[in-house]
Design a protein around this nucleic acid. Structure first.
Ligand SMILES: [Mn+2]
Ligand SMILES: [Mn+2]
Ligand SMILES: [Mn+2]
Ligand SMILES: [Mn+2]
Lengths: 255, 255
DNA sequence: AGAAAATATTAGGCAAGACTAAATCTTGCC
DNA sequence: GGCAAGATTTAGTCTTGCCTAATATTTTCT
């Protein structure tokens, strides 16, 4: 067996697989424990990629033909093993590139994502490995997302959305969504960056703001604003933003 | 006026423009001084890109519609100003990437070309500028080819093919063709790398070999083989190889 | 259950790029 | 000056990806 590669995947195909993988991961995390493995829907994929649902249907047929997904009309899709491998490979590239751009070239963390979105399809495996080696084999990207290993293992530690943390708890920021540059600049401004510890000081009801205090500065992003040592300030963020910030519980302590 | 960019060019379009530019340069150099500006032929382009001539015709029509070339059926093409600007931009990207990969990531000079061939279409201007800055704004790529400036100026110093150097002359290696990895490895092996000085010791008639002595080591490529201090060795190379090695005359001295 | 809403697919097009086979220009040469 | 060789273009297809409009299926809600 061991049918390695076949023809190289096109950039759109890699982006589809990556997107499907990310939807599967998000669904699995959302539904507590996974039921049957979650399936990604056509609309979900279309929205994530910014293209029309009808276009997705066409691509899904092709992906199924190539054995990268399993596809049942009207039922959504699931990555095959080959598809998952390909997705993880692209995700590794993306994240290594992001890490390299910030570490080695001084790129601000709010602009690496769009750059990586294109480079991930053009860089060879050798280049990715050299980049990773040059910056000390990082295990996460600048936004805290784990980098898959060369052989396709992804650290899937379960994280908690900041919006779900109870008042009084101190948590460590682990990961923030990297899609929106403005959001990233704002979070860096607040000091909400991977590695920082924050205490949830208050939480207003009915979708109101969450008040945080930075207990310890993070690493990434502080370079972005140049500011530091303002760790004693409180800030309030809305729940939709807090839903995109993922944390690790440090000590269970009831509110 | 000042109609800046328009829609971004596709990777194939960038490669066509680059190829046409390189053909025009080679033709101009070949014909001593330029007559009327030289025109690139369909077959030439097809061969350089490794695609069928019929496919080239179709693309040339599209490039002409976009104002990137002037095209008269059966008569060959010439870059427009817009086309030349685009070509130089791509060439700058290509060469900066090659230089960065060797300087910053330890890439061997025989493998940077293929990597740059893909990355040149995916890197942003900002990334190219950061790369160039990170390695000290190099003026040539690892193979000695001049890097166009940000504003599209290219150092067009006339070079001489090593095959045309008379016996007895000492010349400095300036540039070698970068397409063939094997050839590059072989040249590095011989010490024929940019910056090296070589004396043409002998030249056999009827397309026979050219005997060289390395008078002074070059910089690039010596790292490739790790070897050095063997500058006292003579080597003989064939005329077709010597036609791909370009040099600068150091002192005019009759043979 | 049955209709409305949400999801998803089909139908029909288009543009970019590439190919092969079959014309058609241009040129060099006798 | 004409003709064969070489260069180039045309004709006719394909595949990939994407779009809109129309249709079909599934889910949800009364
Ligand atoms: Mn991408
Ligand atoms: Mn990221
Ligand atoms: Mn290229
Ligand atoms: Mn080069």
């Amino acid at each position: 067996m061991m049918e390695k590669s076949g023809p190289p995947l096109t950039a759109p195909v890699e982006d589809y697989l990556k997107t499907i993988f990310e939807i599967e991961v998000a669904d699995a995390a959302g539904s507590g424990r996974r039921e049957h493995p979650p399936a990604a829907g056509t609309n979900e994929i279309a929205q994530a990629l910014g293209i029309a649902p009808a276009s997705v249907t066409g691509m899904l047929r092709r992906l199924a033909e190539q054995g990268l997904i399993s596809y049942e009309r009207y039922r959504g899709v699931r990555l095959s093993d080959a598809g998952r491998r390909a997705a993880l490979r692209t995700i590794r590239r993306h994240r290594v590139i992001e890490a390299y751009l910030t570490s080695a070239l001084g790129y601000p963390w709010d602009r690496v994502h769009q750059e990586a979105e294109r480079l991930e399809h053009a860089a060879s495996d050798e280049l990715i490995d050299r980049m990773a080696a040059a910056i000390g084999e990082p295990t996460t990207d600048p936004h805290g997302a784990p980098i898959p290993t060369r052989d396709g293992t992804l650290d899937a530690r379960p994280l908690l959305a900041l919006v779900d943390v109870d008042v009084g708890h101190v948590v460590r920021i682990r990961m923030v969504g990297d899609r929106d540059p403005e959001r990233l600049r704002y979070l860096a401004e607040l000091g909400v960056t991977p590695g920082a510890d924050v205490r949830v000081v208050a939480r207003a009801p009915f979708g109101g703001p969450i008040t945080l205090r930075i207990v310890r500065e993070g690493s990434e992003g502080s370079r972005v604003t140049g500011r530091s040592g303002r760790s004693d300030r409180e800030s309030a963020i809305g729940p939709s933003l807090a839903a995109q910030v993922f944390v690790e519980s440090r000590r269970k302590r009831e509110a």
